[in-house]
Amino acid sequence: MKITRKEFLCIAGLAAAGAGAAKAVQTIGGADPAAPQASGAAKRWGMVIDFQKCRADRDCDDCLNACRAAHNVPDIPEREREVKWVWKERYEKVFPFQQTDYTRRAFEGHVLPILCNQCANPACVRVCPTAATWKREDGIVMMDWHRCIGCRYCMAACPYGSRSFNWSDPRPHIGKLTSEFPTRTKGVVEKCNFCEERLANGRVPACVEACRRKAIVFGDLNDEKSTVRQLLRARYSIQRTPELGTGPSVFYLI
């Protein structure tokens, strides 16, 4: 078969246009055939934090330290510019709309760990202009630190203050560097990733493992027999500002 130069160029052009159109349709449709499949069918990772157990030991920082060490989280001296994945916050700040004057008094000074809620309907993912943050099928809200342009729109959108920005190079502030996890650069946003790197190897998150009172329980919210589901059946649990419709995957037993 003989193809003239003109025909060849024509076919090549059409092919390129076709590929471009397919890409556009894919983007608009939001379907991403290359998205990694979560191991097992339709899991939704969730966490249950037992406030009763946790507040028994107010000075314990085990979960925070474990997370810090596992993820090269820097120790920024300036409080206003800290990078936080999981941290302790005062009870009344965590649940501002779910208390009375009396609970406020009763629990004054109590703190509990908070982290990214890995929302079912994450506002941060909705606003990100580059899809540098996205939700996996197992519910984990991920961050691509190489794609993030540092516009901080996700931080404005997150109603939980769970996202941190690297105002400067974080590396000089990392206590003990681990080679198991990447460090980040200045100018990008980061947050808790539910230890997806450990889950991939069949391990529970670092904070769960570190908690000596077993106050943090992790598991599949879609599995009725999982420990998290059993706890959520047996005890009264609350989420952080669920009225916003974000659908947090982190629950607190009060």
Binding site: T27, T130, A132, C148, C151
Partner: peptide
């Protein structure tokens, strides 16, 4: 922008819900 060199990612990965 925190990473101004990457600002064209907005066009490279057009995200219609943003």
């Amino acid at each position: 922008m925190g990473q101004p060199a990457r600002v064209l990612n907005v066009l490279r990965y057009p995200t219609l819900h943003s």
